[in-house]
Design a protein around this nucleic acid. Structure first.
Length: 112
DNA sequence: CTACTGACTTAAA
DNA sequence: GTTTAAGCCAGTA
């Protein structure tokens, strides 16, 4: 597993319950701006069952999977289980639920 | 080395 | 609201 993937997955693992982050946000926090597409690849390749992959949505707050994809419904229910409201437009309220890492959280990440 | 990929993003129409 | 198109870039083959 590449160093980049490890970094990305470690950041994703820090997203608290009932919060979401965008792919671009995770890329930024991983020190790789403009690598949002790499985040999706890292998540796809991950075999870590406890990784909160469902807390990553696109920049509009929508689930990235196609509605026909089984993972779409899975992610939707996982988010709702955490109390995140998703209306019929399939959008998360980013203003309300976007993860805002504390300074100590970011400093902790830098130690890796 | 080059070519293609993508659970993305942004801007423009 | 919608749909396109172009940009992005590490990983993969």
């Amino acid at each position: 597993m590449s160093k980049s993937y490890e970094k990305i997955l470690s950041v994703v693992s820090l997203i608290p319950s009932s919060c979401v982050a965008s792919y671009g946000q995770i890329a930024d926090l991983s020190g790789m701006p403009n690598c949002s597409r790499l985040v999706s690849k890292a998540l796809k390749s991950s075999k870590n069952k406890s990784l909160p992959w469902h807390r990553v949505v696109n920049s509009q707050g929508k689930i990235a999977f196609k509605a026909s994809d089984p993972n779409f419904r899975l992610q939707l229910s996982l988010l709702r289980e955490e109390g995140i409201e998703i209306k019929n437009n399939n959008k998360v309220n980013l203003e309300k639920h976007r993860w805002q890492p504390s300074l100590e959280t970011m400093l902790f990440e830098l130690s890796f």
